[in-house]
Design a protein around this nucleic acid. Structure first.
Length: 577
RNA sequence: GGCGGCGUAGCUCAGAUGGUUAGAGCACACGGCUCAUAAUCGUGUUGUCGCGGGUUCGAGUCCCGCCGCCGCUACCA
């Protein structure tokens, strides 16, 4: 098997607070599964993520918290790093778009675009809040809608009558930041990226991507069809990547727009990764086609709302740079996880957030539920009832119980030592066939980035163990043929070792426990004959160390309690935030 | 308002390029087992594929209209 090289990124979580389960399953978790899988197959992986830190929301959140924005982001970055670690997210580096590496790269890209004639300085008129001493993005200007009279319409659109607005149309406009009515319309100068000039090239590139899913493709096509507009890539803010004043004197004191610097953060974070060990790590080998990245397969994981930025926006930046940067090969887009049919909401604090989830249950419970119900082709729904149902049935009832059954029987009849091999009959043949089929299906699903299908294959692998026990009935067999019964249990140990290896990508903590029952060398990639390989590797007489109950069941009272605590079905429709 | 998506068994969802009797899991029913966290294993029931038209030899799958739900509208996956 040749070693492949996989560059994997997950969408960058915004700095503003702990993410919810929708964010987790929408990109970070599936990216982690894919990275773990490819590593496990012996391939070379660079898995990168970072916090997206610039922009008005970060500034306002910092102000609300009463700290400097730089300090706020530093703190929040650590908070997110810590909570992500609790979900066993295995990125090689978790960087920051505010890091020097990203600042430099962002300015470099702007310079390259400028050299190639794709930037232009334009003057626009924007609302300025004198009391806040800042320009206000459209949505941060609030006033009375000229159309319907709603008194809290936003400057970009009235939420009540849905009319699209220009902030200057609002009656009695005021700042959403301070409430101040001391507003002016001022001229301001910004850099525009002339995307229209690159639209054809980007369109050709998009059409050359034949492996994108219908969801991703349709979104990209829609944007191309509507016409790619020139976009302003700078803002009148203080927190961000400063525009190079030597090159763009008219823009001194301004910063790049997050829309521009955030995706560059993938490169920036890779460079941060390399900076940790400059002698041993070469980030350009992953990103520059002229420096060794030509054999890299780049896979992005992201939510569907992010598709336009990754299919059109960022590729435009790269293509316009006329530099040989690696463009994305495969995009895995996700739909939404809903909470009782409504939207998860960060600002409305509706749904389950990662810190709360981590406090309630070990991460594998969440990982399994979320991955096996990932919103791949359609939105999928979270309810405490279905969550508890999946945990109780699949994890506790099937997988955990299987391990417990084997452990009890082995302790009772074999002193918890690996028994000698027994005879192989029909049940053994069936077990092997089932394991082969499950692993084959798993490998195929992973190759296609189909997370749910892969999860079903994994489930069928452990279910084969319960079927095998029912067929062989070692608790009964032991009375008539103890050696044969012991042989059955040896097979079970081989299956548990197989699970310990194959489950590593989805539920790594559990996999590690299973792999530790009878430590043996499970090296090499997951292959369809793994069960027989590991059976052969078992050494008769080796002690087996079984863990306590792997998964606890979630009783109905707890479901009710959590529903009450987090808001369940009675929570109204999603707030519009 | 515009754009996009969805509406398939009681529930949650699968069903590229239209093609034999529409699938899975859960739930439910019955049966087996009793080693196990009353767990597990087997068998089985359920559908005018939102409504109405149309194209076609043939449509859940394409087209039109309607109804209902949801999301986005460029700084939260």
């Amino acid at each position: 098997m040749t070693t492949e090289r996989h560059l994997i990124t997950s969408a960058l979580p915004y700095i503003n607070g702990v993410k919810h389960l929708g964010n987790l399953i929408g990109s970070m978790l599936p990216a982690d599964v894919y990275a773990r899988f490819q590593r496990g197959q012996g391939h070379e992986v660079l898995f990168i993520c970072a916090t997206d830190e610039h922009g008005t929301p970060a500034e306002l959140a910092a102000a609300e918290a009463g700290v400097e924005v730089a300090e706020y982001c530093r703190e929040q970055h650590e908070v997110q790093r810590e909570v992500c670690a609790r979900f066993a997210l295995s990125w090689d580096h978790f960087g920051r778009t505010s890091a020097p590496a990203n600042h430099e790269l962002t300015r470099d890209f702007a310079a390259a675009l400028d050299d190639n004639g794709f930037l232009e300085t334009r003057t626009t008129r924007q609302v300025f809040s004198v009391d806040d001493d800042r320009f206000l993005p459209d949505r941060y200007v609030i006033g009375t809608c000229p159309n319907c009279g709603y008194d809290r319409a936003r400057g970009d659109q009235c939420e009540h009558c849905t009319k699209q607005l220009d902030p200057t149309e609002l009656i009695d406009p005021r700042s959403a930041v301070s409430g101040s009515t001391n507003l002016e319309v001022r001229d301001t100068t910004h850099l525009f990226l002339l995307q229209s000039r690159l639209a054809d090239e980007v369109g050709d590139w998009v059409r050359s991507r034949d492996s994108w899913s219908p969801l991703v493709r349709s979104i990209a096509d829609k944007w191309l069809k509507e016409g790619v507009q020139d976009r302003s890539i700078t803002r009148d803010l203080s927190w961000g990547v400063p525009v190079d004043a030597d090159r763009f004197p008219a823009l001194a004191g301004k910063v790049f727009y997050v829309w521009f610097d955030a995706p560059i953060g993938y490169l920036g974070a890779s460079r941060e990764w390399a900076d940790v060990d400059p002698a041993g790590r070469d980030w350009r080998r992953w990103w520059r086609l002229d420096e060794g990245a030509d054999d890299v397969t780049y896979t992005q994981f992201l939510g569907k709302d992010n598709v336009p930025f990754h299919t059109i926006g960022f590729p435009t930046t790269i293509i316009g740079s006329r530099q040989p940067w690696k463009l994305v090969d495969r995009i895995k887009g996700f739909s939404w996880l809903t909470y009782y049919g409504g939207k998860f909401s960060t600002s409305g604090h509706r749904g389950i957030f990662m810190d709360d989830a981590a406090e309630l249950l070990p991460s594998d419970y969440w990982r399994w539920f979320l991955l096996s119900n990932a919103p791949e082709t359609n939105d999928s729904n979270f309810t405490w009832e279905t969550f508890a149902g999946v945990v109780n049935k699949e994890l506790a009832g099937e997988l955990g119980n299987l391990v417990n059954r084997v452990g009890t029987l082995l302790g009772r009849h074999c002193d918890s030592l690996v028994p000698a091999p027994g005879p192989a009959g029909d049940p053994e043949t069936q077990l092997e066939a089932a394991a082969e089929a499950a692993i084959t299906a798993y490998l195929a699903a992973m190759a296609d980035l189909e997370i749910r299908r892969a999860a079903q294959a994994l489930r069928s692998l452990w279910s084969a163990g319960n079927v095998y026990l029912e067929q062989t009935e070692p608790w009964r067999l032991v009375k008539t043929d103890p050696d044969a019964a012991a042989g059955v249990l040896r097979r079970c140990l081989a299956l548990l070792a197989t699970l310990g290896r194959v489950l590593e990508a989805f539920i790594p903590d559990t996999a590690a426990v299973l792999a530790g029952v009878v430590p043996l060398d499970a090296g090499g990639p997951v292959t369809t004959d793994l069960l027989t390989r590991l059976d052969r590797a078992l050494v008769t007489g080796t002690p087996a160390a079984f863990p306590p109950i792997l998964f606890r069941k979630i009783p109905e009272e707890e479901v009710e309690a959590w529903k009450a605590r987090f808001g369940g079905g009675d929570a109204g429709p999603a707030s519009s935030d």
